[in-house]
């Protein structure tokens, strides 16, 4: 599904190159649940952003769904990730002005899906996440766990093949975190959605099928569970 080959990302500072990612190669298959771990500054988030096409590597080859991403134009890339990728953030990043229902609906609008179909899809999603009763509330009226639930629902509404999560439980207490992880596992198993998450928590990492440890922009070790 996804192949990164010799990916480097560096910043030129004076005469020195500061590497964030250094000649990193990685393959991920459909249906995997990968956890990326590593200390601060090891390049976890940058890696995730490159996979999500929100950031570009300085050099290297990037294939996604058999397409050479490094050769695609901005527009094509955007079409690709709109179709296949969903994002979940540590800070949820819901839009404050929109209700729960509207937040979940937004990606569908940008995929030009008709109103009636949108309604049906959103209703299904609300039902599935047990948040029908909260559909008209604004993000500020929800707890952190509930907000993240909405964030995940929003990420899944477009039926992505790949879910990218950047410390999805970082702002939650341990009980809420556990629930989210269980949900991830379920999504991975039942819907076959590939998940890549960045996490600091050993415990949460173990929900995945593979743990990749990063250090100084390189893969230090890989553990298959």
């Amino acid at each position: 599904m996804l192949s990164l080959q010799h990916i480097s990302k560096y910043y030129q500072t004076g005469g020195n190159k500061t590497f964030v990612l250094n000649d990193l190669s990685l393959d991920i298959d459909q249906g995997e649940f990968v956890s990326i771990m590593g200390p601060s500054g090891s390049g976890k988030s940058t890696l995730l952003n490159i996979i999500g096409m929100l950031d570009e590597p300085t050099s290297g080859y990037h294939y996604f769904m058999d397409q050479p991403v490094h050769q695609l134009k901005e527009k094509q890339r955007s079409a690709l990730y709109k179709q296949y990728i969903g994002f979940v953030f540590q800070a949820y990043h819901l839009i404050d002005e929109l209700t729960v229902l509207e937040n979940i609906e937004t990606p569908l609008i940008y995929q030009n899906i008709k109103g009636a179909e949108r309604k049906a899809l959103v209703a299904d999603m609300l039902d599935r996440f047990n948040i029908v009763g909260k559909k008209d509330l604004f993000p500020a009226q929800l707890s952190g766990g509930q907000q993240q639930l909405v964030g995940i629902a929003r990420a899944l509404i477009g039926k992505p093949k790949l879910l990218l999560a950047d410390e999805p439980t970082g702002n939650l207490n341990s009980k809420q975190g556990e629930e989210i992880m269980e949900l991830f596992k379920k999504i991975n198993k039942e819907d076959g959605v590939t998940i890549i998450q960045v996490t600091h928590s050993e415990k949460n990492a173990e929900y995945g099928s593979r743990i990749i440890n990063l250090l100084d922009g390189r893969i230090e070790s890989t553990t298959t569970l």
């Binding site: 819901l94 404050d96 940008y110």
Partner: peptide
């Protein structure tokens, strides 16, 4: 900035 960023991640184009 936040709203714009989120919408872009969710697939909004600049004209939208």
């Amino acid at each position: 900035m936040h709203e714009t960023g989120v919408r872009k991640v969710l697939g909004a184009s600049k004209p939208q």
